[in-house]
């Protein structure tokens, strides 16, 4: 029997629930450390980013309007789908040069992280909402609400767990996200779209791009229709550019310089709260 020729996968962007090539037609050639495989990733452009923000903005109202229970269910479903594709992600990590043990741990922790945040979907509000005992006849309460469209530069060092650790808390909290996958290890961030695509996540809620960080950080941080930016990275030049650009529309900035994504402090409801606003309502009491 002749050996069947391996079919290589085409890696694309994931924007508005569609797998699309970059509008720029550019690519980044990536060769795995063992020099076995060559992959051409999309070198996403600022226009891809613009389209992704348009899609995230239009998905925001419906997504933030879903019930917390439903968002929790969807994240649990994502975890189920990742569980089913465990082997794929482990082999992708190995392909990118990680050991088998490291890769297994990264994927297992990633699934755990998804389940963990699925559970928070309908609980963090109870933890951070309050009824305020004001000195006048009003029922006054404060609740967290998603800030809107979040742009995220995913960590470069942890291509799946780190990626999920910044994206998931934002989206569980009702935000929609445009995320730029790791540049050094783009594989799992990009292929995570395949998991999303089979997980009932509406198009536009999570948009995934690959591309050169140097080129895109400026656009990610200066877009006027982005409400918050999460920057993961230790490059102080990038960090300070991001912070300067937040002044344009008073964007919320979240920074992770050297977070170890395996540590317990890499997860928790306070990460959800980083992309939440507190809204206070004064409701009259009387007749």
């Amino acid at each position: 029997m002749t050996q069947s020729l391996h079919i290589n996968k085409t890696y694309k962007l994931y924007i508005d629930g569609n797998f699309s090539r970059t509008e720029s037609g550019r690519y980044i050639k990536w060769i795995d450390p063992k020099k076995k495989m060559i992959i051409n990733f999309c070198r996403g452009s600022r226009k891809d980013f613009r389209n992704a923000v348009v899609s995230a903005r239009s998905a925001f109202k419906a997504w933030s309007g879903r019930s917390a229970y439903n968002r929790g269910q969807i994240f649990y479903r994502i975890a189920e789908m990742l569980e089913g594709r465990k082997e794929q992600f482990i082999s992708e990590l190995i392909l990118q040069g990680f050991t088998k043990k490291q890769s297994k741990k990264e994927v297992t922790l990633s699934i755990d992280r998804l389940v963990y945040y699925a559970g928070w979907a309908d609980k963090y509000q109870q933890l951070f909402s309050r009824v305020n005992p004001v000195s006048s006849p009003y029922y006054n309460f404060s609740t967290p609400e998603p800030t809107g469209v979040v742009a995220a530069i995913a960590p470069d060092n942890s291509c799946l767990l780190g990626f999920l650790s910044v994206v998931v808390p934002a989206v569980v909290g009702g935000n929609t996200v445009v995320v730029l996958a790791s540049e050094s290890y783009p594989l799992c961030g990009i292929t995570f779209a395949e998991v999303l695509h089979s997980s009932d996540v509406p198009g536009g809620v999570i948009n995934i791009m690959s591309g050169r960080h140097d080129e895109l950080i400026e656009q990610f941080s200066s877009h006027m229709d982005v409400n918050a930016i999460i920057y993961c990275g230790a490059d102080s030049g990038h960090a300070s550019m991001v912070e300067k650009n937040t002044a344009l529309n008073v964007k919320r900035a979240v920074k992770y310089a050297d977070q170890n994504w395996i540590n317990p402090d890499a997860q928790g409801p306070y990460h959800i709260m980083k992309s939440q606003e507190i809204k206070t309502t004064w409701h009259p009491i009387g007749y």
Binding site: N132, P133, V134, S136, N140, S142, T280, W282
Partner: peptide
């Protein structure tokens, strides 16, 4: 209306 117990911002 304002109150010390009520977040504002």
């Amino acid at each position: 209306k304002f109150d010390p117990t009520s977040p504002f911002g």
